[in-house]
Design a protein around this nucleic acid. Sequence first.
DNA 1: CGCACAGTTGATTCGGCTCAAAGCCTGTGG
DNA 2: CCACAGGCTTTGAGCCGAATCAACTGTGCG
Lengths: 246, 246
Amino acid sequence: MLKPVLPAVQADHVPPPFLPDEPLSGLFASRQAETFAPGQAVFWQGDQAVDILRIRSGCLRLFRVLPDGRRAITGFAFAGRVLGLAVRGRHAQTAEAVTEVKLQRLSARVFHAAVDDSPGLRPQVMELVCEEAAAAQEQSVMLASKKAEERLATFLVTTAQRTGADLRVPVEIELPMSRLDIADYVGLTIETVSRLFSRFKREGLITLDSPRLVRLRRLRDLIVLAGDLDDGDDFFEPERRPARPH
Amino acid sequence: MLKPVLPAVQADHVPPPFLPDEPLSGLFASRQAETFAPGQAVFWQGDQAVDILRIRSGCLRLFRVLPDGRRAITGFAFAGRVLGLAVRGRHAQTAEAVTEVKLQRLSARVFHAAVDDSPGLRPQVMELVCEEAAAAQEQSVMLASKKAEERLATFLVTTAQRTGADLRVPVEIELPMSRLDIADYVGLTIETVSRLFSRFKREGLITLDSPRLVRLRRLRDLIVLAGDLDDGDDFFEPERRPARPH
DNA sequence: CGCACAGTTGATTCGGCTCAAAGCCTGTGG
DNA sequence: CCACAGGCTTTGAGCCGAATCAACTGTGCG
C-alpha cells in the first residue's frame, strides 16, 4: 500500500510540467492542455462521464455532496493522475481545482478503444483502477476506526509519501488545500484539524512555517501515531528507497 | 450507484446454489467447491494472493486489523461475488466465513490469462473492479460524514437492496452477521448499534422478530434517514424494478 | 441444570462538534 | 506606504453524541 508507488517523480531535475514514465502518457501525448482556475469545477457529480482526464499540473479535490449539503472529499488528485477510469456512466463525484490546474482530455470511447486492443496498456489501466480501489478502502479503514489525531497523522504521512521525498529526514510539505478541505477529507471539522495542527506543533512533531507549509520533524513518531501504514518499519530501509546520487 | 446492479438474483425459483447469469461463471464452471465453517479464514491479510475465488453460497466478512487490534470490516461478500480481482501481490485484508461458505478457486495466473485473451470477459472483470472501487468510496463518504443513526439506516437499506427483493413493501432481511460485525462495518460500537436497532424498532421503522431477522417497515423513511442514496426517489419507479409476474 | 455467549439496557465519561471571538495574512485602494 | 476589508486560521467555552464501563437478559448447548 505504502510502498513506493510513483515511479521517478522525485528525480531532482524534473519540473512539474514534464513527468516522464507516467502511466498512459503515450495516449495523451499530442493532446493540448486546458487550464482551470482555483475553485473551478472540472466535472460535476451526476455529469455524464465522456472523457478521460490526465492532470499535468496542480491539485484537484474529488468530493461528493450529501443532500443536506455536507461534503465528503474522497481524495485529492495531483499531476500524473488519470481520472475517469473507474467511472461507468455518470460521475459519482465532483472534481474541483484547488490550485490552478492544467489537464488533458481524451474521449472515453477513444481511450477505451485504444486500450482495449493494446495488450500493453490494459494492465496499466487495470493497475490504476486497482490503486483507486485500494486507496478508497484505505480511507474507509481510517474513517471507520481511527481517532482524530491518528487521522491527521495519517494524512500528513501519506501526503509526504506522495511527494516522493526522502523520508529519513525532516520533510517539508506544501499543502495546497485549505483546512476545510483537509477536514472534509479526514472526516473532522476545521476547528479540530486546526487544534491538532497546533498540538502536533506544540509537541514538536511538526513545525508550521505558515499554515500551509508543514515540516515533519519526527516523522517516525507520526507514522506510529498514524497507527496503520504497515507500521512503517520498512519505510526507512535503504534498499526500498535508494539514496539519490547528487 | 444504487440502481439495480445484481442481475436476476430476485428470480423466485432460483435456489442459492445455482445463480445463473453470474459474472464470470463460465470460468469457474468445472471447479469444485470448498467449504468453510463459520469463523474460518479463507485468506489472511498479508498472504500472497494466488487465487481468484468465487462464492457459491454463504457470507464472508472482509476486514483489516490495525496494529492495536481494532478491526475494520470493509465489506461483506455473498454468493456470486468474485474475490481477488483487485488484489496485486498480497491481500490487504482477511476474509473470514460468517456463515458456512462454499466457494470455488481458480489460479490467478490462469484466470488472468483466460480473461486477457477474451475480449468478452475483459469488460466484465473491469466492471467488477470498478464496482469494488465504487463501493469502497461509498463507504468512505458514509464514514466521513454520517452520524450513527444514518449509518445504520444506510446499512439496512443497502442490505435490503442486495437481496433484490421488492422494495415497495415491508422487506424482511436475514442478517447473517453479528452486531459486532455490523458495528465494525459502520464504524460504531456494539452498544450503539444495539441501541439504534432498539430505537428504530420503538419508532416503528423496523421490527425485530429475532436479533438477526429484521423487517423493514417504512423503508422510505429509512432511505431518507440514510441521507445519501440518490435520495431514493427512483427506488420505487416501476420501470426500474419491474413487478414480477407470479 | 447451568454455563457461555450474544444482545440489550443503563450510568457515566470524554472526544470532537458547535458556537463565538480573536488573530493573521493577502490583496486592494486611498 | 499605510489602512482596511475579507477570507482563512487559530483559540476558547460549553455541549452533545457516541464510547466506555457495567449489569442484566435472554437463548442455545453441554
